[in-house]
Amino acid sequence: MREVAFIKQNKQKWLNFEKTIYNNHFKHPDELSSLYIQLMNDLSYAQTYYPKSKTISYLNQLASAAFQRIYRTKRTKTNRFISFWKTEIPLIMFDYRRYTFYAFLIFGLFVAIGALSAAYDDSFVRLILGDHYVNTTLENIENGDPVAIYKSGSNWGSFIGITFNNLFVSMKSFIFGISGGIGTGYILMVNGIMLGSFQYFFYEQGVLWESVRGIWIHGAMEIFAIVITGAAGLVLGASILFPKTYSRLTALKIGLKNGIKILISTFPFMFAAGLLEGFVTRYSNTMPNWLSVGIILLTLAFISFYYLIYPHIIHKKLRTHVATI
């Protein structure tokens, strides 16, 4: 069967499936499960005969939405709060995994641009970080503590100030997605260039390792979470630019709802990063290397697993389970 004929034959069924999912037009989870099995049959057929078709992406999106609806309506002993973190967020991240990739790609590109700009322009670091920060850090390097600037103020004061700042940047990164993703890209650009020039500055001064073992104690989760909120902003922007089969308003509602959920999911990591910066980073020069490196690797591994690996595990697990319903 030609792909055009396949689409024509099943188009109305898929559109009805969309309405069923997003408007809750079903009486029982088993009804949705039955429709889901039909959809999976169509998806398998498309993957076999039209492996490069955009139809596969469309059907995969419907399948992911069905996963969420089935497990949201199914009676379980797990409360709503736990299921949000354990199932719903991972499935949303799986569904929008390409936007996570785009966010990291954009951010990484501008980190490289920031580092290269600092390497070829002596005034660039001062332009980005400001004279006060650069002069203070140079003094701290001479005094033997390159990251002393992160140890000023009280523990709680640093925690509260940094946490609120990070939350503000994250929410701005998401909200700016309403511009079609351009505003989100700008936030990722600014933070990427800042990070690249920042790290090159320490490298140029010969204290890169000292900066890494100190700043990245809190920075691993902080930077990662900011990029994830960038992905949420791109989701919002894409819902406006690429509504697919939905009306633009419906697509915006879906993108806004899922983007907000992704944004909310980063809040605990932001609080954890703030706690680390307020109560742990200030002691980085007195703790052994194995401890500081261990904290960095542990926090990076945890947030990476949750957003990059766990979604695939949950998707595979639920797909196998639903197929047996």
Rank of each mutant, 00 (worst) to 15 (best):
M1F: 01
R2S: 04
V4D: 05
V4I: 10
I7R: 13
K8F: 06
N10M: 09
K11N: 06
K11L: 05
L15K: 10
N16I: 04
F17R: 13
Y22K: 11
F26V: 06
H28N: 15
P29S: 10
D30S: 15
S33D: 07
S33R: 14
L35A: 13
I37F: 11
Q38Y: 11
Q38P: 09
D42A: 15
D42S: 15
L43A: 05
L43I: 05
S44W: 07
T48D: 15
Y49K: 03
Y50Q: 07
K52Q: 08
K54W: 07
I56R: 09
I56T: 02
Y58N: 15
A63L: 15
A65G: 15
A66K: 09
Q68P: 00
I70E: 14
T73Y: 11
R80H: 08
F81V: 10
I82N: 10
S83F: 12
W85Y: 14
W85K: 06
K86V: 09
T87D: 09
E88Y: 10
P90Q: 13
I92Q: 02
D95K: 06
D95Y: 06
Y96W: 06
R98E: 05
A103I: 06
A103Y: 00
F104W: 08
G108Y: 12
G108I: 07
F110D: 13
F110L: 15
V111N: 04
G114D: 04
S117K: 09
S117Y: 11
A118D: 10
A118E: 04
A118C: 07
A119R: 11
Y120T: 15
D121G: 01
V125H: 01
R126F: 09
I128N: 08
G130A: 08
G130Y: 07
D131H: 07
Y133V: 06
T136Q: 02
N140H: 07
N140M: 03
I141R: 01
I141A: 01
E142L: 10
N143W: 07
P146H: 01
K151L: 00
S152W: 04
S152G: 12
G157C: 09
S158Q: 13
G161H: 12
T163P: 02
K172A: 12
F174R: 04
S179H: 00
M189Y: 11
N191Y: 08
M194S: 05
F198G: 08
Y200E: 07
F201I: 03
Y203E: 15
G206L: 01
G206N: 04
V207Q: 01
L208P: 03
L208T: 02
E210P: 03
V212T: 06
G214Q: 01
I215V: 14
I217K: 00
H218Y: 08
A220W: 02
E222C: 13
I223G: 10
G230W: 08
V235P: 00
A238E: 13
F242A: 12
F242T: 14
T245M: 08
T250M: 07
A251N: 05
I254K: 05
I264Y: 02
F267I: 15
M270A: 07
A272D: 06
A273N: 05
L276H: 03
E277K: 00
F279L: 05
R282C: 02
Y283W: 01
P288R: 02
P288K: 02
L291Y: 01
G294I: 00
I295Y: 02
L297V: 14
L300M: 12
A301Y: 11
S304I: 04
I309D: 12
I309M: 09
P311V: 03
L318A: 02
R319V: 01
R319P: 04
T320W: 10
H321N: 12
A323T: 00
A323I: 02
